[in-house]
Simulated scan of single mutants.
Amino acid sequence: MDARTTIPERMRASELLAQDSLTVGDRPVPVPAADEVLIRVASVGVCGSDTHYFTHGRIGPFVVEQPLVLGHEASGVIVAVGEGVDAARVGSRVSIEPQRACRVCEQCKKGAYNLCPEMQFFATPPIDGAFAEYVTIQSDYAHDIPDSVSAHAAALMEPLSVGIWACQKAGVTAGSRVLIAGAGPIGLVTAQVARAFGATEIIITDISEERLAVAAQHGATRALHASESVEEMTVDAFIDASGAGPAIRAGIPAVKPAGRIVLVGLGADELTLPVNLLQNRELWLTGVFRYANTWPLAIELVAAGRVNLDALVTHTFGLDDVENALMAGRIPGALKAIVEPWR
């Protein structure tokens, strides 16, 4: 650790003990390894996966079997460094890329480190997340942010990275016509990214009139209720940010031949798809699993004013109120909740 910085020995952290059971625990402040930095957490966004762990105690094969700190959308200030890290980093404001890859497997070596089989990802059992006063991360996963970027926006570089990865997978570029299902935070940031990438038509569908009403403020050129047919449309790419089977099936017919379909939203494990249509139009269908090498672009887009993440934040909470933060999505008008550990 950097000797110039006085770090407490203990810290507070919100712990998920089991399904529907949270407490604020007292833990040792983590000590950074040689290649790590210690970060005083400033802001942590609440993701749907956090809420799912709270309400279900698991996501697929990942089961909460011991106290788990949730939260993986985080920002903060470096307050100490490991012995292998330049001490000049102390004091840097950073956005945290919340993962640790092995760096030596086939996927890591070809740059697809998000597919590393040994990935350790924040708030995915048994790896703790960032609803805590301090966290550690490898130094190169702590990305410096300019003073013009707020702590909240720095935390939301994580969902922005999902939107960037989805648009890259969808081949969105200048003049693209894009259909997005789902006007939640991921759908809205994806729309903003599509606009920044040069898409000229960005259509968003949702079942919530309230969310559709704000979609135009986040890049959409057209907002449609999910009950309206989109089959007569012709788009270059369809990005599903809803995870809803009916929305996915409704969106696919709008994609032109050789177009792309990208599945981002988490839904059912199995889905019935129009295979004949996929074959006859030679459509590309892929999923999105997190992201890789997106943070530099995310920071540039926000710093340049091409993407507005602060506009997504509607509610803030402290560590003692994480349960309400996890349930904030039920509040009318809510988009993105933020936990501030030092609040």
Rank of each mutant, 00 (worst) to 15 (best):
V322Y: 08
A130E: 08
L297H: 12
A241T: 02
K169F: 06
A18V: 12
F121D: 00
A130D: 04
E73K: 02
Q168L: 09
P274I: 10
Q279H: 15
E73S: 09
A216Y: 08
R211N: 06
V77E: 14
G129A: 11
A123E: 02
G267C: 01
R343M: 14
V307S: 06
R12N: 05
F54Y: 15
S208V: 06
E340W: 12
E15V: 13
P341S: 12
A250T: 00
R12V: 10
V90L: 09
A334E: 13
R330S: 15
M119E: 08
P159Q: 13
C116F: 03
E36R: 02
I202H: 00
P32L: 09
A254T: 01
G267L: 05
G60T: 08
L16R: 01
R10P: 09
A153N: 12
V262Q: 01
L285C: 11
P185F: 00
A199T: 02
G76M: 02
A311Q: 10
R330A: 15
A87T: 14
I78M: 01
V288A: 11
A334M: 10
V85I: 12
P253G: 14
G171C: 13
L68A: 13
D20H: 15
S161C: 15
V307I: 15
W342T: 11
E133V: 11
W342Q: 13
A311Y: 06
N280D: 11
Y134M: 07
A244C: 04
P257K: 05
V135N: 03
V235M: 11
I186Y: 00
D310S: 04
D2K: 10
I96A: 09
G48E: 05
V235S: 06
G219S: 10
V44M: 03
R27D: 00
V135W: 05
I127T: 15
S139H: 11
E228W: 04
V29D: 00
N308E: 15
V63T: 06
V79R: 07
H72L: 07
R222S: 15
S176Y: 04
R211P: 02
P125H: 04
V85K: 01
G245K: 08
S75R: 04
A3V: 11
I204D: 00
E282L: 15
F131L: 14
S242R: 03
A170K: 01
I203G: 01
E83H: 11
L68G: 02
L283R: 06
L266N: 14
S148Y: 13
P246D: 00
E201Y: 02
V162C: 07
V77F: 02
V90C: 06
S95C: 08
P274A: 14
V172C: 11
A226S: 09
A244D: 03
A42H: 10
L312I: 03
L309S: 03
P253S: 08
N324C: 06
D147T: 09
R306I: 00
L16S: 07
R306G: 10
P117I: 07
A244P: 06
G57E: 03
D144L: 12
A199H: 05
V214H: 10
V235F: 10
V214R: 12
N308H: 14
A226G: 01
L301S: 09
I180M: 04
